[in-house]
Design a binder for these strands. Structure first.
Lengths: 337, 337
DNA sequence: ATGAAAGCGCTAACAG
DNA sequence: CTGTTAGCGCTTTCAT
């Protein structure tokens, strides 16, 4: 340890120690060959000094940070957990580190996440916005690095995009309830001014129409959350005592509904059959276990990550791609007939 | 838009446009004053060009990346979700970005996370290792940047550390079961060769001893997961048909146990009362709702983040701090007498 | 108050 | 095959 250098080793430290130039050090360390003798000396020095390349310097020089980010509303929602898991896996596989933005319900935070691409600490972004405003679209079109959107985009937006037709999924849920003989089918929705809120509401109406039912007055909306779901269920039960089927716009709402139904003394599925949406981990944990329409959250995360990774590599100039995932109903006890 | 420059604006672009030196640009942009005239010109140019400082260059120059990381086993576990949420919040508040390492069950990955501090892309790390081996300790002591450990550390390790005495928590669970008149109290544990597995097992024994009970043969171990918990519960029920109380080493195991109990036709809490641990979101979702010993996951995440942020700032040379959180039993339906 | 210049650590082009 | 050198974009002396 003759190292009179302070701080961590750099290529310069190594160069001095090995008696070669910094260029040779760089070459050897990047596997670009060299005289066997040189290679040996450099490697020895690097090992002895415990050299690790400085990622910041590399990034600045190479113009690539090796980082991507995922922005979602709240990691507390199991849907996002499923996405993060797969995104993480794909990112790591491709040699990217993953950053997390939790935007909360705050629209402004989402925009900030988009704008922050400009400082180049991140090479690309996956974003799953719950609302898509004019501002979002402006900011998206102005983004200085690749962005993949998880969620539906208006026609004509030229961005990589992973979607699922939750309208169809919602219709499937209703069809399933109809299939087991339910006729008074309610719907607990999230906020109507969100993309998923809109789509699921339309799907619910589609499902009813197909079955020749009318459900105009069987809808309650609130937040996409458990407590809100419980309250909405309570309101609906009071208004519609003869309810026999219930579709919930996500599993969190459904969990709240199950609670409210129990407290109201209704048996599930005997009195009221319940279907959730997203098919999260929760669906297997409740009692009765929850029938739910899976929207492939894990798969969407994975696809989004793959799209992004591709665009950051090979696919730099590819046309924007719109990929979609098919909803799938998973029947469990809450609709066992 | 006379900008003949390619790529994003830099201080140099601005300097040319404003007719000043790059040094002045830097000063103005960092609020270090200047002649009113200069300030105005620079700000105008910056705005027009949509200038955003390059984070990589800043980092390299300043030696600070503005990033911290959190390494845990699997974001799928609600305990970590709770931690991430708070860590995220504290990090953002303090101006740090948050990186996520999912290490899986892989020991090697944890070590990699620690070693990766050396490349300086991250200023500090919060790690919640499930096992602490000799290698971990070596690597921890060798870490080139501040590390905060969530979990218990052997005496004498000089590292910031947030802990909770889950041994005491486990004893509380048993005491609670005893308190509602249970005498044949089983324990479903995770792997015994993990830190939490050890502590909770000891706490279980403590609890029994205090009550003058013997439970040597009422233990099953598996993984800290739902399916594993269900299987373990099944095994235990076969071996010990007169079981009347059950403590589970975490909520995931407890959820599995509830399922197994139901399948075996046992009523909860009438036949068997159940207590989980961690008091995750799950505990409020199951039926019956699950009594669980909270270990302050959210709080631990928050504290860890605060310790780290402090050490990266003011507290650079502070003595290592060991903070602890107190377990708290939250009684719910699964132990209603 | 301002500009010139050095340098953070690295890679790559260019000579030799 | 190897060394010298020029930057990547920024902050910060050091003169002026």
């Amino acid at each position: 340890m003759t190292s009179a250098d302070s701080g961590p080793a750099t290529i310069e430290t190594i160069a001095r120690r090995a008696g070669v130039s910094i260029a040779s050090v760089s070459r050897v360390l990047n596997g670009l060959g060299g005289r066997p003798d040189t290679v040996r000396k450099v490697q020895a020095a690097a090992t002895e000094l415990g050299y690790v390349p400085n990622a910041m310097a590399r990034s600045l020089r190479g113009g690539r940070s090796g980082q991507i980010a995922f922005a979602m509303e709240d990691i507390g929602n199991p849907v996002y957990v499923a996405m993060v898991r797969r995104i993480q896996a794909v990112a790591k596989e491709a040699g990217y580190r993953l950053l997390l933005h939790s935007t909360g319900a705050d629209r402004e935070e989402e925009l900030r996440a988009l704008r922050s691409l400009a400082d180049r600490h991140t090479e690309g972004l996956i974003i799953s916005p719950i609302r898509i405003t004019r501002e979002h679209l402006d900011e998206l079109s102005r983004a200085v690095a690749p962005v993949v959107v998880i969620g539906s985009l208006p026609e004509g937006v030229r961005l990589d995009n992973v979607r699922v037709d939750s309208r169809v999924g919602a219709a499937m849920a209703v069809a399933h309830l109809v299939g087991i003989g339910r006729r008074r089918i309610g719907f607990l929705n999230g906020p109507l001014d969100t993309v998923p809120g809109q789509a699921r509401y339309k799907g619910y109406l589609d499902g009813l129409a197909t079955a020749g039912l009318d459900g105009a007055e069987l809808v309650e909306s609130g937040q996409f959350q458990t407590d809100s779901g419980a309250e909405a269920a309570k309101r609906l039960l009071e208004r519609v005592p003869d309810l026999d089927g219930l579709f919930c716009a996500n599993d969190l709402i459904a969990v709240g509904a199950l609670r409210a139904l129990r407290e109201a003394g209704r048996r599930v599925p005997d009195d009221v059959a319940v279907v959730g949406m997203d098919d999260t981990e929760l669906a297997r944990v409740t009692w009765p276990t929850l029938t739910s329409v899976g929207l492939g959250s894990a798969r969407r995360g994975e696809l989004a990550a793959e799209l992004l990774v591709d665009r950051l590599g090979e696919g730099r100039d590819r046309e924007p791609r719109w990929v979609s995932v098919t909803p799938e109903l998973v029947a469990r006890e809450s609709t066992r007939s």
